[in-house]
Each structure stands twice: as C-alpha cells, then as structure tokens.
Design a protein around this nucleic acid. Structure first.
Lengths: 212, 212
DNA sequence: GGCGATTTTGAATCGTGGTTCACTTGTTGC
DNA sequence: GCAACAAGTGAACCACGATTCAAAATCGCC
C-alpha cells in the first residue's frame, strides 16, 4: 500500500491550509470582504482556484475560518488585558480600551470582519465573533456588578459592542488618523459611563498603555 | 398632438410609484432585504418586472427610495418627540425612547433597513439613514451641552446610534417580545448614562408615553 | 374609430463569481 | 522504475437575479 500520508506531507498540507487563510486575511485587509474571492485568494496563496476546495468545502467555510482566527486573536487580547488588571472596573476598562485600540490599528480588517456589508451567508461567521465579544464583555460586567448600578448585563453587553463598533469602525465613525489615543480614550469614557462608571477619568481608569 | 400627460395619468403614475415603494417595504417587512427582488416587488405591486424600470433606473434607486421614506418617517417621529419635550435633556431622552420604541414595534423592517447584511451598493442608502440619525442625535446633544459632561458630540452620537441599533435590532439584541417597555427603558438608561446623564431614572427622564 | 404617443409586458439576455471535474502532476513504498 | 493513490490544475459550468427590449396594450384627442 504505497503512499501513506507522511509527516512531511501533513506539514505541507497544514501550512497550505494556513496560507490560504492568511491570503484571505491579506485580501480582506487590502480590499475588504469584497476582495475575498476564491480566485483572488488562490492567486495570493500561489495555488489554483480548485485547490482551495481541497482545503475548504466552500467559500463560506473559508470566511468562517478567517473570522474564527481573528475572533480568537482579538478575544484573547481582550481577555489578557482584563486578566492583568487590578480590579473588576479596571478590567472592564482595559478590555474596552484594548479592543478599541486594536480595532483602530487594523481598521480596514476590523471593518471587513465586523461591519462591512456582505451577503447573508458569510455573515453567520461574523455573528459568532460578535457573540463571543458580547459574552466576554458580559462576563466582565457580571464580575463588576458590585461596582455598577443594577442592569441587564446581556443588554448592556450588546449595547456596548454596538457602541464600540459604530464609534470606531462603522461608517459613521469619525476619522481617527493621528489621534487614535484621544479617540480611544473618549470612546472608553462613553462606554464606561454607559455601564454606570461616572468618573472613569478621575479614577484613572482610562490611561493608555502601549501594548494595546 | 394626441396624448398630453393628463392630470389623471399623472396621478396614476405617481400612485404606481408609491405602490412600488410600498411593495418593497412590505417585502422587506416580511422577508428582509433579501426578499426585495425586482420580480417579487413587481408581483406584489401587481405589475410586470420590466415596469419597475420605468419608475426607477435600477434596484439601487428603488432601495434608496425605500430607505429615504423610512428615514424621513423615523427621523420625523424622533424630531417631533424631541420638539415637545420641556427641556434639552428631556428632549434627548424622548428622542432616544421614541426611536427605540418604534424600532422594536417594527423590528423586522428596522433590521432590514439598518442592520441586515446586504450587498455593498444597497448599503449606501442605508448609510444616509444612519448619518441622518446621528446628525439628529448630535444636534440634541449639542443643545444639551450645558447639562452634559464635556464630550465629542459627533463621536457620542455615532456611539449612541450603534448602541441603540445593537441593543434593539442587531443580531445580539435579546428577545424583547412582551417586555418592550422594559427593554426600551433599560436601553434608554444605558444610552443616557453614556452621554453623561447619571440619574435619568431619578429625574423622571425615562417615563414612557404611549405614542412612542 | 383611428392615429400618434406612451406605458406595460415578460421572456430572453447578461454579468458575476462560486463550484465542479477530467486530467496532470507529485508522492510513497517496493 | 513502477504501481497506487493523493493533491493540484484551470477552464467549463452553473445559479442567481438584475436588466433589456421588441411586441402588445393603453391612452388622449379629433
């Protein structure tokens, strides 16, 4: 029985799988979700269009994989920032600012991943990103419940996600070029006030660190 | 020279124009933006597909007209509510609650009009709706500036729009069926807090009236 | 009723981009 | 080198729904 899948081959396949996702991400970063076309992605990855279908059953799955990757990375960053914070309110603030700063730093990709118009099928993957984000913030709100006014955590979390998205990367968002820090801080203030933290600035909750 | 465009004919043409938009709205209300297809809209309006093109240059224009109509109606309602309020904060609150209550009452249409994934071209019309909404809220924020903490009005307005959309009609929004009033009030509290009104409930700013 | 102008019709056309598949190329173990 | 199979290729195919257009129906006026 010749041809067992060698270690070597398995590695090459895995690498190609990753390369396709990376190509999709690059395409999205440059031209938005509209640029994530099978032919274009394949070309970027240096393979033929048909080959993509040996790695993903369809475009939907490729986009879902891309969004999962982004989601994990972003949520990981948010969680990490919250984890090292000294208290629940500080954790909330750190999570908000981290998300905001990172979204601004990769604005086009963030827009593609979360707000750009796409056909409904692709939107499903995006929904899980938003859900995960809302859950994450919901947990932080729950953890800070003792320091916040009584509220419906799920509703607040959803509203918070919307507030951040629209304020940062949605089509209404003001141009932040060159004043990212100021925008992040302003929006964090608005966000924290929304949750019931009236004096975030005075309490030193919105100081920026560079790893955000 | 036979056939001048008679008053009668003009009226019929105008009526048909309106009927097409109404058919589009009905389609959107029932099946979302995906159901707004030329053939389907034409059938609802009781005309042939080709006829639509005598009234609108293309689908984009039809959708834009639909969104304009919705936008004018909604913004009119918001403005009217703000106009009769006794003061600037009260006006803000009334605007927020009016928008929220109306969105919940026609949730599917609101979703179609503002949040449902659609192809990029159609999204342009939607953008003007959001912009108009943000401008409206921005004005109210500006008018209340004396009663609010210092803030970037445009940023706050954008964030407010996002907060309301995601809290009410976005995919994350919790199911509000049967508790619309509670959701509207909760969200209004969050929204007002975001703008810096810490004690909206105590000040009686979130009482609901039925015409919302 | 008839004539010119306008409106309506709906089947055929078209553009787009995802997906398929017969064929070629590469890999493994003997 | 070769058999057996996997992976890769890319042009052809297909689905979908917007758009077109030549023919038919309708309209206003005499």
């Amino acid at each position: 029985m010749p041809y067992r899948r060698t270690e070597n081959v398995a590695r090459r396949l895995a690498a190609r799988h990753a390369a396709i996702i990376a190509a999709a991400r690059d395409a999205a970063s440059e031209g938005g979700m509209a640029a994530v076309q099978i032919a274009a992605v394949a070309q970027r990855a240096g393979i033929a269009a048909g080959t993509v279908y040996r790695y993903f059953p369809g475009k939907t799955d490729l986009v879902a994989a891309l969004l999962t990757e982004i989601s994990e990375r972003e949520i990981g960053a948010v969680r990490a920032a919250a984890d090292v914070a000294p208290g629940p309110l500080s954790a909330l603030s750190a999570a908000i600012m981290t998300f905001a700063a990172r979204a601004l730093r990769h604005r086009r990709l963030a827009y593609a991943a979360i707000a750009e118009p796409v056909e409904a099928e692709l939107d499903a993957g995006r929904l899980s990103f938003r859900k995960a984000l809302a859950t994450e913030f919901g947990n932080l709100i729950a953890a800070a419940v003792a320091h916040l006014p009584e509220q419906d955590g799920a509703l607040s979390a959803a509203a918070l996600v919307g507030l951040l998205i629209e304020g940062l990367i949605g089509p209404l968002a003001p141009d932040a070029t060159g004043r990212e820090r100021a925008v992040v801080q302003s929006l964090a203030l608005v966000a924290l006030r929304a949750l019931g933290v009236a004096d975030a600035r005075a309490r030193g909750l919105v100081v920026m660190t560079d790893n955000r």
